[in-house]
Amino acid sequence: MTDLDRLFREYHQPLVRYLTRRLGDRDWAEEVAQETFLRAVRQGVIVSERSWLFAVATNLIRDEARRDARRRKHLELLQQQARAEEAVEPEPLTIERAQETAMARRAIEMLTERDREALLMKEEGLDYNEIAAALELSVASVGTTLARARRRLVEAYESLQESAAHKEGRGSHAAS
């Protein structure tokens, strides 16, 4: 089995999941993952494979995010349009789940980049040393970063839930 085979088998799935969560776009995530693996092959010897792969993938999407802000904006518009269309003919369960996902995405986007990446890496099973290496943090600060990220995420999500409930209440009040 070649190095590429092994790397791919071992890390492709968590890397794509991390990137999908980070980007909200599975295809894009797969492309970034593919590029990451290609770079790993070119790199040759890698000491800490998992943190290296996650660091490279993270850097790739950072660079790309700068270049591609316009495209993402357009995608968001399309998604909003689709959601608006869905609201015309509600499908309770599906919409509820879609709203939850959209809210989770908005909440995660409210974190700082570093907090978000540390949290998503932790959720992918990277340990503190690996997160520190990937994000160029000190190991001692990873706990603080994660604590802050988690708390802010939960708070942001709760706040979004509250405002959504408030809007719904206002809507039903206006309707009556």
């Binding site: 399309l78 998604q79 959601r83 879609a98 996902t101 989770a104 995405r105 909440a107 995660i108 959720e123």
Partner: peptide, 12 residues
């Protein structure tokens, strides 16, 4: 919340 990100709603 993070696991909720795995459901990617379809666009158009």
């Amino acid at each position: 919340i993070v696991s909720a990100l795995d459901d990617i709603p379809a666009g158009v």
